[in-house]
Design a binder for these strands. Structure first.
Length: 423
RNA sequence: CGGGCCGUCAUAUACCGGUAGUAUGCGUGCUUUGGGAGCACGUCGACCGGGUUCGAUUCCCGGCGGCCCGACCA
């Protein structure tokens, strides 16, 4: 069934809760749980409920558009991986890998997906023969499983999470780095569209690559990383590889280096030929010489992004979704016994994604829920507002205005929240 | 994986070695209707296992689960 761009709140099977759950202390998890966006099934394992899934889909759509724009071809790979994949690259015994023991077996013969370099390298080996088959890039949005020793911070570090992973295949390192720069640019666009200020940061590669890599970092007190950043020109280094320190002059401009906690929202890795070699992923070049394909990989944590956005966009009353990722565009409240059905249908006719609070609830409860859920525009119909008029208020605005529906539609069109800048 | 804290109605909490209380929610009815309404009645609870004890939800041990700090990490 297709998820409709409009909904009556009385039909929504989830409810808001007034009090923060005692088993969540991270702000993103508290607000998302209270609003009915997510349900925690285990530590670091969440269900995305109807409202939350709409946000995930909005973020995914932005990511898809930008990946498609740099030639990414979307596919979907399996979550269940035979052990030969990780054995081939020596990663079978990496400790975050969840291994699967089937009924009747003593030893695990599969693992569940923690990353897909091996899977796609093997697939690519079937189709790539010549330099004429290169370059290309493919991506998926899929669930990753990692046995984190300590899941924490709500959606920011889970054991199961949604990730977009893009892999690129090249005839040369030069071509890889050319594409790498294009993906970095695409990532900038993704984060801008999601309303985030993300710093392009030099970092260490970890398990995935031997080279230094680059990460996109959003400054936030809940971050697990520490970056050295010049806020004037946007130059940033992860503290783990940085030779700079707080108070130093920026090496790129006349600004000053600051030290900040940050959340990694994206990363890009030059992989080289490690995975190509393991799976016989070779091509024949113009001179007839057989060579290893050069690979890159590029990740964005989709579910983490939802958590980060909540950390950045909230107030004491609830979430303030940037319009681009909001579950709906408008939240229609019928108060004082008014019937909002007419306005509800009119908004639909004008293509506005609207959640209609038609519940038999008090005004205070509807206002509180609207603030908590955080849809960008709140539209009220009531006897007080008057026949033929609506009251409209942006979630972050202090005051509401009364106008005709046509004027309200115009206002919403004009004042689209297009997000913050990127450095 | 080391350390700390914590498991009580659906939710948030309180008390207690001897009949587990409050608020919210939920149900019914009436009254309400612009910032989580009021009244009445009703409804629902001690994570699991073992030990100590006349008696354990309470104390002890173990398990399981959750959160936090650290290490590690999208």
């Amino acid at each position: 069934m297709v998820s409709l761009p409009y909904m009556r709140q009385s039909h929504l099977f989830t409810k808001t809760v007034k009090e923060a759950p005692k088993d969540e202390s991270a702000l993103n998890a508290q607000l998302l749980a209270r609003g009915g966006f997510v349900y925690k099934n285990s530590a670091g394992v969440y269900s995305y409920l109807p409202l939350g899934w709409r946000v995930i889909r909005a973020i995914s759509q932005i990511v898809r558009e930008e990946m498609d724009a740099v030639g990414g071809q979307e596919l979907l790979m399996p979550a269940l991986h035979d052990k030969h994949y990780l054995k081939a690259t020596g990663r079978w015994d990496v400790d975050v890998v969840y291994k699967v023991i089937a009924g009747g077996e003593k030893e695990p013969s599969f693992n569940i997906s923690w990353t897909h370099e091996e899977i796609l390298a093997e697939i690519a080996a079937k189709y790539v023969n010549s330099y004429k088959d290169l370059p290309f890039a493919a991506y998926q949005i899929q669930t990753k499983f990692r046995h984190e020793p300590r899941a924490k911070s709500g959606l920011l570090r889970g054991r199961e999470f949604l990730m977009k992973d893009l892999y690129s295949f090249h005839a040369s390192e030069a071509d890889l780095y050319d594409y790498y720069a294009k993906v970095a640019e695409a990532y900038r666009k993704v984060f801008v569209r999601c309303g985030l200020t993300a710093y392009y940061t030099l970092a260490a590669g970890g398990d995935f690559t031997i080279d230094n890599t680059n990460e996109f970092q959003v400054i936030s007190g809940v971050g697990e990383d520490t970056i050295h950043v010049c806020k004037k020109c946007g130059y940033a280094e992860n503290k783990e590889v940085s030779t700079l320190k707080k108070g130093d002059a920026c090496p790129k401009c006349d600004g000053t280096i600051e030290e900040e906690k940050a959340v990694e929202v994206g990363n890009i890795f030059p992989l080289g030929t490690k995975y190509s070699k393991a799976f016989g992923l070779t091509f024949t070049d113009e001179k007839g010489v057989k060579k290893d394909v050069v690979m890159g990989s590029y990740g964005i944590g989709i579910s983490r992004l939802m958590g980060v956005i909540v950390e950045q966009y909230h107030d004491a009353k609830g979430i303030i979704w940037p319009a681009a990722v909001a579950p709906f565009e408008a939240h229609l409240l019928a108060l004082g016994g008014a019937d909002g059905a007419g306005v509800y249908h009119a908004l639909q006719t004008h293509g506005v994604q609207v959640l209609y609070d038609d519940r038999d609830a008090s005004a205070g409860e509807k206002f509180a829920d609207a603030d908590l859920i955080g849809i960008p525009w709140r539209i009220v119909v009531s006897p007080k507002v008057g026949e033929g008029k609506v009251e409209i208020k942006g979630r972050a605005d202090d005051h509401a205005q009364i106008m005709t529906l046509e004027e309200a539609l115009e206002k919403m069109r004009k004042e689209l929240d297009i997000g913050k800048s990127v450095k």
